[in-house]
Computed example of a mutant assay.
Amino acid sequence: MTLARTPTGVNAWLPPGPALLFCPADRPERYAKALERADAVILDLEDAVAPENRQAAREALVANPLDPDRVIVRVNPPSTGDHRRDLAAIAETAYRVIMVAKAESADAVLATGLQSIALIETPRGAVHANEIAEAANCIGLMWGAEDLVAGLGGKSSRYGDGEERPGTYRDVPRHVRSTVRLAAAAFGRFAVDAVHLEIGDIDGLAAEVRDAVALGYTATACIHPSQVATIRAGYRPDDAEIAWAREILAAAVENPGVFSLNGQMVDGPVLRQAESVLSRVP
């Protein structure tokens, strides 16, 4: 298969908000509740479902429809038979946005024929992130730390107690997080930050969300409804940020080119930062 090098169309799906909540696809009684709590739900046919329950999960996916504009379906890795069966089930639904688990090549993403968020969570996927992002039907990238570290033969993605910077990512996961963000930006795709597995660590989640926002991530995935409020709050600009952005953009109308405002030099990059702030206003 030849790698398509044209950008994703202007009508490509975008997350309707910053909080994307995973929900096991074999728990249809949770579907609607998950969607009520989050901006979009990721119905998971992969890691959240035991292999022996995946056929039941696919049947539940077909039998319990949700608003397709707010649903992503995570499918199993392209190298598996489950992947093909997942795509066959999705063809019976109105869902057209998928998350490709353990994406490792552009061809595998192209072969789905659907708008795809490529989940970069293996060493091979990490080194091919740019190629994957360039696939014509790749609309976004997400990264995952735990499968990545397992693929490295490691044992933890974060520093532990007694180590430097406890609770934060080790250097290789941080590198892949940066790689994914750069690849997404280079090819005009949105980027989704990884889940924070410590559900009770609100401060740690809030810190990661602040950093994700500063780096231009579009959304953060989560595994529990209690994390949604923290994610939304982190992506929402405060009143001072909004006022700054509006003042900058209003002044730019009267001052073409580079100008100074309140002691700050304003040029093209600053204008784009102001536009980014306002894009996150609910």
Rank of each mutant, 00 (worst) to 15 (best):
Y31H: 15
A50G: 08
A38K: 14
V49N: 09
A12W: 00
E52F: 11
L35E: 09
A40T: 15
I42R: 07
D39N: 10
V10P: 06
W13D: 15
A40P: 11
V41N: 02
L20G: 04
P51T: 02
A50V: 06
A19G: 04
A56C: 13
P16Q: 11
V41W: 02
D44H: 10
A12S: 05
Y31A: 12
A38G: 12
E46F: 11
K33G: 00
D26I: 08
N11Y: 02
R58Q: 05
A40C: 13
A19D: 09
R54A: 02
D26V: 03
L20I: 15
D47A: 05
Q55H: 15
R58A: 05
L14E: 03
P28T: 03
R30S: 03
E36H: 13
E29S: 13
L35G: 12
A25F: 15
N53I: 04
D26N: 04
W13T: 15
E46G: 03
C23R: 04
A34K: 04
V49Q: 09
E52W: 10
Y31F: 15
V10E: 10
L14T: 07
D47E: 07
Q55N: 15
N11H: 11
R37I: 06
E52G: 03
T8M: 08
N53H: 15
Y31I: 13
V41L: 01
E52V: 06
A25I: 09
L45V: 05
L14S: 01
A56T: 13
D39H: 10
A34W: 05
I42G: 03
P16I: 15
E36A: 11
E46I: 11
G17F: 11
C23S: 08
R54Q: 13
R30L: 04
I42S: 06
G17A: 07
A50C: 08
A34V: 10
W13K: 09
A32V: 14
K33L: 00
P51N: 10
L45R: 00
L35D: 09
E36G: 11
F22V: 06
T8L: 02
V41H: 01
R27T: 08
I42D: 06
A12T: 12
A48H: 01
A25G: 15
R30D: 02
I42M: 12
C23E: 03
D39F: 07
A56H: 14
R27A: 09
E36S: 10
T8C: 06
R58S: 00
F22C: 05
W13P: 11
G17Y: 11
E46M: 11
V41C: 00
A12P: 01
A38T: 14
V49I: 01
A38Q: 11
A12K: 04
L43W: 14
K33H: 04
P28Q: 03
L45Y: 09
C23T: 12
G17M: 13
P18Q: 00
P24H: 09
A32H: 11
L45Q: 03
D26E: 06
A34R: 10
R30N: 05
D26P: 04
A56I: 11
R37V: 06
